[in-house]
Computed example of a mutant assay.
Amino acid sequence: MLLLDEHWITRAALRGALANAVDLEIMAEATDCDEAIARLCTGGLTADVLVFTGATDPANLCYRLADELPQWPVRLLMIGGEVFPDSLGRRYSAMGWGWLPQSAAEKHFIAAARLIAAGHCIAPGPSTAGNGRFTNLVAQLTARELDVLRLLAEGCTNAEISARLQLGESTVKSHVQNLLNKLGARNRVSAAIYAYEIGLVHLERQTGQRTSQGEDPCHLVSG
Score class of each variant (00 low, 15 high):
T171S: 08
H202Y: 14
P70G: 07
D5V: 00
V51Y: 06
T46F: 14
F134S: 05
E29W: 05
L183P: 07
N181P: 01
L146W: 04
G81M: 00
L151C: 09
F84C: 07
T157C: 00
E68F: 15
K173T: 12
A55F: 05
G184L: 03
E204I: 07
Q213C: 15
R164I: 10
G16R: 02
A118I: 03
A118N: 06
C218I: 11
L77D: 13
P70Q: 11
A13I: 11
V83R: 11
S103K: 00
A59E: 12
G132P: 04
G208C: 12
T53R: 06
L24T: 05
V49H: 06
Y63C: 09
G119N: 00
G119K: 01
W8C: 02
R188L: 15
Q177L: 15
G199Y: 09
A59M: 09
G155R: 03
W97Y: 10
V201G: 07
V51W: 03
V83C: 08
K173F: 06
A105D: 14
C33G: 00
D216P: 12
P124G: 01
A112D: 03
S127F: 12
S127M: 10
V148L: 02
R164F: 11
L200P: 14
T157A: 02
H7M: 06
I9W: 00
P73C: 12
A19D: 02
